[in-house]
Write a protein that binds this DNA or RNA. Structure first.
Length: 298
DNA sequence: GATACGTGGGT
DNA sequence: TACCCAAGTAT
């Protein structure tokens, strides 16, 4: 089978499979730029199952760019509860504010302009262009990267991954193709345990049934490994979420709440953590009588 | 290019 | 229990 035939067979098989088996995900039923953007930001490093739980309520609370732009940041951060990477909530609201101010509340459709917006990188810019504005452009996420590496191992090694993704994009079918690749990657062609038996592309895939299950490493890691700051950042934001709008908490008390074993030498560490959260727009620090009071941003 | 950045479920 | 992982982005 020559290259062209193989490619068209792959295209046909995957699109046919997707048409029949695609999950009915809510962001596939809309082309609304706001709704697509919210879904794509939520899906950054986050499983579909988790986004499905949070997406509808977020849209109910903030149905469009205007409502998100004018909302209290504290409420946006609260609505992000359970999603992780809380920076995304702040940046998403920043996008809303920027386009309300600078672009008449319209999300740009140009990929390079999209990519200048906070929290929108190369993947998300292309995803919005394709899934909302139906542009014929490729997306490369962890699923697409993995599938192309398995399906086209030689080209994947020698070619830039974005060029490769563009080169296999079927004419006028970018939306379905991109969705299908990600659907396959997150359901069958998974990283650790690909289910090649059921894969619609198994007869075209040189990696089919070749994926070695990675040996579990038994190396003991340091039992008392250092806990990364993001764990404490998460605890802080989680605690602040539970407080009412006008409430705040004194920083020493907050430290005790999120790190009870903390000693005096943790003071400097803690102030750095708080400064970081403040810089990220995730908390507000109000100083009064030589004490610092912490809350979510107003 | 390495590192930081959450969260909850799976094994 | 301890570790891995998941539709990335910013520095």
């Amino acid at each position: 089978m020559n290259i062209g035939n193989r490619k068209s067979s792959i295209t046909k098989s995957l699109l046919h499979w997707y048409k029949q088996k695609a999950r009915p995900l809510p962001w596939r039923k809309t082309r609304n730029p706001y709704r697509i953007l919210v879904s794509e930001v939520m899906l950054q490093q986050t499983q579909v199952s988790r986004v499905l739980q949070k997406y509808p309520e977020f849209l109910r609370l903030f149905p469009n760019f205007s409502s998100l732009a004018h909302a209290r940041t504290a409420d946006v951060i609260r609505a992000w509860s359970g999603m992780g990477y809380n920076n995304r909530a702040v940046r998403l609201q920043q996008v809303a504010k920027e386009i309300m101010n600078d672009n008449n509340g319209r999300l740009p459709s140009d990929i390079h302009i999209l990519q200048k917006l906070p929290g929108i990188g190369r993947y998300t810019a292309h995803a919005v262009a394709c899934f909302s504005f139906e542009q014929q452009t490729a997306v490369v996420d962890t699923n697409v990267r993995r599938i192309l590496a398995r399906l086209f191992p030689n080209r994947a090694r020698s070619m830039d991954e974005w060029e490769l993704a563009e080169s296999v994009l079927p004419k006028r079918k970018a939306y379905e193709w991109n969705q299908a690749l990600m659907e396959l990657g997150s359901t069958f062609c998974t990283a650790a345990h690909p289910r090649c038996v059921d894969c619609p592309l198994k007869q075209y895939c040189p990696s089919a049934f070749q994926i070695r299950k990675p040996k579990k490493s038994y190396k003991r890691k340091n039992h008392r490994a250092m806990i990364p700051n993001r764990i404490y950042r998460g605890r802080i934001v989680a605690l602040l979420r539970t407080m009412s709008r006008r409430q705040s908490i004194e920083s020493n008390r907050l430290l005790h709440m999120i790190r009870p074993e903390a000693r005096g030498q943790n003071q400097k560490w803690f102030s750095l953590v708080l400064t970081g959260l403040q810089r990220d727009g995730l908390i507000q620090i109000h100083s009064q009588k030589a004490k610092n009071f912490i809350s979510l941003p107003k």
